[in-house]
């Protein structure tokens, strides 16, 4: 099973500076959070997907397609039922409600997709180095990067554990909601314990490799703002500026 989200390709996107990619992600969030027009969000989605396509990162979306779909469906169903509005189609469901649900669904999905593209095209070390360069303390940056790294490890462990418990007769697919929730206990407890044991060794290994020896450290990996970065940064800033202008000034 693939543990990391990072896809090791050599594309324009991968070569961009992590700071640039963080800014692009920020720009995506700004636009997604500020606008409620379906057209604007669809254009944003198209731009983000093309951006992801450049980095050949879209294959990673397959891994979270279920989550994306569920968020979208929940949003549509929930808002259709609760939004009110006109014209009524069936019971409390209105066209406005459905549209609003779609807009909110896209908002969330596109932010998740933007985050996924960032993680798929940026090494964990680049993220922490990028954070250090924007003046986040190294320990903080490393902790953040480690948290990202931990997620796939936990998923891999829980996969083994679920196999072990299913072999003992655990059947997660039957019973009502409360019964099902209870059934996750045999999965949760061993996962938590394994992760705690693992992080303990991890902490010892870090110290044994001289982590925290001095405030300064060499960075074998080098990042720098290049021409391509400047172009992308410029575009992202323009997008943010225009968004703010339209939203707050006009």
């Amino acid at each position: 099973m693939e543990m990391f989200l990072y896809l090791d390709n050599d594309t324009f996107l991968h070569r961009l500076d992590p700071r640039t990619k963080m800014l692009v992600m920020l720009a995506t969030f700004v636009v997604a959070l500020m606008f409620y027009s379906l057209n604007t969000l669809l254009i944003l989605s198209a731009v983000v997907l093309i951006y992801g396509l450049v980095g050949k990162t879209l294959s990673n979306l397959k891994r979270i397609r279920f989550i994306l779909l569920m968020i979208f469906l929940f949003s549509v169903v929930l808002w259709s039922l609760t939004y009110g509005g006109e014209p009524k189609l069936l019971g409390p469901i209105s066209l406005e409600g459905i549209l609003y649900g779609i807009v909110i669904g896209i908002k969330f999905d596109i932010m998740i997709i933007a985050g996924m593209i960032f993680l798929s095209s940026t090494k964990v070390e680049e993220i922490s180095l990028g954070l250090v360069k924007i003046k986040v303390p190294y320990r903080g940056a490393f902790a953040f990067a480690t948290a990202i790294r931990m997620v796939p490890m936990i998923v891999a462990t829980s996969y083994t554990i679920s196999q072990a418990q299913r072999s003992r007769g655990l059947d997660l697919d039957s019973g009502n909601l409360v019964e099902r929730a209870k059934k996750y206990i045999p999965l949760l407890i061993p996962t938590i314990i394994s992760v705690i044991r693992g992080t303990n060794v991890f902490a010892m290994a870090l110290e044994s490799k001289g982590f925290g020896y001095s405030e300064d450290r060499t960075n074998y990996l080098q990042i720098s703002i290049k021409k391509g970065d400047l172009l992308v940064i410029f575009m992202a800033l323009v997008v943010i500026a225009i968004s703010v202008y339209y939203r707050f000034i006009i």
């Binding site: 490799k209 001289g210 982590f211 925290g212 020896y213 001095s214 300064d216 450290r217 060499t218 960075n219 074998y220 990996l221 080098q222």
Partner: peptide
């Protein structure tokens, strides 16, 4: 590289 980085070994 991680260990030598911590000990500020030149790149």
């Amino acid at each position: 590289a991680f260990g030598p980085e911590n000990f500020q070994v030149p790149r």
